[in-house]
Computed example of a mutant assay.
Amino acid sequence: MVKISIQEAKEKIAAIFMEVGVNREEASIIADMLVEADQRGVHSHGILCTARYVKLIKEGKMIPNMSVKVVKDNGTVAVWDGNHSSGQILGYRSMEEAIKKAKEHGIGVVCVKGANHFGALAYYAQMAQRAGMIGTALGTGDSTMAPWGGCEKVIGNNPVSVAAPARNEVSPVLDMAMTVVANGKVSNMKRQGATEIPEGWGLDRDGLPTTSMKDYYTIPPMAGYKGWGMAVMVDILAGVLFGGGTGDRAKDFADGPSIMMIAMDISAFNDEEKYYNDIDARINELKSSKKAKNSNGILMPGEIEANKFAASQASGLVEVLPENLEMVNAIAREMAMEPIAVIE
């Protein structure tokens, strides 16, 4: 790992996107989201994605500035056609709209079809969390996983994120794919020259477990048939329900992935003071329960990422994989821009 300046990374990545036609505001939002993913230790969704997005824009598969058609809107629920705009901008704007609807109606739901790669879903769920709401984000993706009992890639890893605000305790943030690990982690290992992958991470073309990178074909569902079942239901909720892309239809050159953003205003469900007292008490109760032998402690969902982010913010530096930084800097050099400097 190497360390780079958060501010420099955001400024230079934003400049790269502006060079390919993205307006300043959207370029800054995308850069912020990519760098924040690395700050949280989610390197499969961080600055690594810069090269992919630039390529998609150049190929005409990602519209550089958001273009949305409102298909339906009944006040509480809206469906947008994203017209293959940036998935991260569509996610950002749709959660903004869901929060706005929740303030008025208690709950807001915005579904987006015709999107693009939307990155780490935690960012969107935390937008609602920071607004004092419970945020949920669900998304479909192109085929990266075989069904439980199958060997053909027919469904995405279909991630889900839920973030709930707490006052005095760590605010829980769940962000998980329905596969054992995100496909990007295996891709990172391959770029690093790994010839083996951890046991349980891979299946070959016959659907049999493998640890060989050479034989690796797909990632199995997390928790076996349960992960497969969850992936199917996310396909329905975040895709089929409103006509969004699923499986191969969610590829960049097809319909594209789809997303569902949900914001829930706590005051519509409970007295806010009681909620905050209760959630702090419950988190404290869980974390102070008896530890397993040799345990280093009980962590809330997202607590490791929150600690990494806090440390990164305090230092002004973010750790990134050197090969991911080189991919960004290669683009910068092609554009006659100064590369991002390594601090440590």
Rank of each mutant, 00 (worst) to 15 (best):
D255Y: 11
E272S: 05
A310V: 11
S288F: 14
L299C: 00
D280Y: 14
M300Q: 12
S267I: 01
F253T: 10
M260I: 00
K274S: 11
F309D: 00
F242L: 03
K251N: 15
E273C: 05
A306H: 13
D248N: 14
A306L: 04
A311Q: 14
I279D: 09
E285C: 00
F242I: 06
F253P: 08
L299W: 13
A238N: 04
G256C: 08
I262T: 09
L299T: 05
K293G: 02
L241P: 02
E285V: 01
E273V: 07
P301N: 13
I259K: 01
E272M: 08
I298M: 04
A311C: 07
M300C: 12
I304F: 14
K287C: 02
G297H: 12
I266Y: 15
M300T: 15
M260S: 13
N277L: 05
L237W: 06
D252A: 15
F242R: 01
T246Y: 00
M264A: 14
F253K: 12
A238Y: 02
N277T: 14
E305F: 09
Y275K: 12
S267G: 04
G297D: 01
N284L: 03
F269M: 08
G243C: 08
G245K: 04
G244M: 04
E273Y: 10
A311M: 04
K308G: 09
I279C: 04
E285I: 00
D235V: 02
D255T: 09
N294E: 02
S258W: 02
D248C: 03
E305T: 14
A281C: 03
S288M: 12
G297Q: 08
A311P: 08
K293T: 10
F253L: 02
A281K: 09
K290V: 04
L241S: 07
D278L: 13
D265K: 15
A306N: 12
A250H: 08
G244D: 04
N294T: 08
D265I: 10
G247M: 07
N296I: 07
I259S: 02
A310I: 05
D235L: 04
A263H: 10
I298G: 10
L286Q: 09
N277H: 10
D252I: 07
G245Q: 07
P257G: 03
D252C: 11
D235H: 06
I279F: 14
K251R: 15
I304D: 06
I283G: 06
D271A: 00
A306F: 12
N270W: 13
V240S: 05
K293C: 07
L241M: 06
A254N: 12
N296E: 06
S289G: 13
G302M: 06
K308S: 02
S288L: 08
P301W: 09
V240N: 06
N307E: 13
D271K: 10
R249Q: 01
I266R: 14
A268F: 15
A263I: 05
S289E: 09
V240R: 06
N294I: 01
I266P: 03
G239Q: 01
M264S: 15
A310M: 06
P257D: 00
S289Y: 08
E273D: 05
